[in-house]
Design a protein around this nucleic acid. Sequence first.
DNA 1: GACACCAGACCGGCCGGACGGTATTCTTCA
DNA 2: TGAAGAATACCGTCCGGCCGGTCTGGTGTC
Lengths: 207, 207
Amino acid sequence: MKMTTPKLQDMLLDATEAVVARQGIANLTLDAVAAEARMSKGGLLHYFPSKDRLVEALVIRTADGWRSCYTEAYERTPEGPGRMARALLDHCLSDAKCWTEELRRSSSAVFAALAQNPALIQPMRAVYADLHRRIAKDGLPPGVAEAVAAAIDGLWLDWVLGIVPLEQVRVVRVRRALEDMLARATQDRRSPRANGASRKRSKGRRV
Amino acid sequence: MKMTTPKLQDMLLDATEAVVARQGIANLTLDAVAAEARMSKGGLLHYFPSKDRLVEALVIRTADGWRSCYTEAYERTPEGPGRMARALLDHCLSDAKCWTEELRRSSSAVFAALAQNPALIQPMRAVYADLHRRIAKDGLPPGVAEAVAAAIDGLWLDWVLGIVPLEQVRVVRVRRALEDMLARATQDRRSPRANGASRKRSKGRRV
DNA sequence: GACACCAGACCGGCCGGACGGTATTCTTCA
DNA sequence: TGAAGAATACCGTCCGGCCGGTCTGGTGTC
């Protein structure tokens, strides 16, 4: 099997991300990418025969990166219930190493795809489907691991979209809260008698 | 004070959302919006002198809608610690009423703005800043209310972006888990001696 | 000379927006 | 009251520019 994205292709994808980061999705044009990569448009189109293919490759690279990120985190996490959730918390919500400008760039590739052609996010959908499958059988009470994943997604997307500014302390606070929830859920598993508050719903108030 | 968006403007914004929903952000053109609204391009440009202004108005409308959504939910929620978090859970994660196709449309306005001109999402940023201010003084242990808000954002954005398909049962599971967390946090507040697991961190493992 | 790699001119189409025009309503003053 | 004229609401054409993609050609390498 042949590696589909040797060095040059990868460099072109980097250039694409750089254009998006600096000039916005609206200015993601073939000319701009070619200029960023110091190559002619003909050269660019030699490697990616259309803009759709270019963006598609970008999405695939981002999706693969995200998949290998959480799978490696999973490998490095001790076994036991909530292993995937713990992996996400430890790795994706760590203080400094994540949340770099580079990660932000690669993420906004997805939005470029969404603007270019919504069908192109399919690879990302597939990765998320895999992640949710892993999360579903994480050995925790239903919803707990999913809540952790959703919260991480929320922090992450809010940040990438520029809706909320990045605030390390906030990330840390949320991580602590989620870790507490995980710990509670795990010890409930062990002594299920103790979760008296579990089914307490607010009384059936009209919305 | 004059109402800035009388009926016709609102109708044009509806048309804009419809175009985005049906043809995608890439095909959001003035001609398309005018055609959707059964008006000439000249007429459209009479009300919104540029495309930027059109998208800006759309974002403002969406942001206002979101703000009044959670403020009204807040009003209808009984007092006490975690009021804002409970309001979000009860109202924004309710089974059926939310998560309509209409809401999805109005949300994707933000992505249209992001593609058109990232500066245009400022109104949405302001609304989120307000929400986070409310959440910060919600009377809960630090991070708990923020985790709830982040999880809701995550579910919501994953759905709007089309990254994960809509699955009611998943939403319900997450809501239950978050409600448990809220209940735990509240009773900890009342008897802080009981949160023995709170500070339990996974041992300092290298990432 | 066959092939991979790359350059850059070129084209057709589309899009934002300017502009001049018309119909309708509102204001003003005799 | 009603005519004149101003303001407003809306129309549709046109233009300049940009963008994706094609094409022709040029270079090095086997």
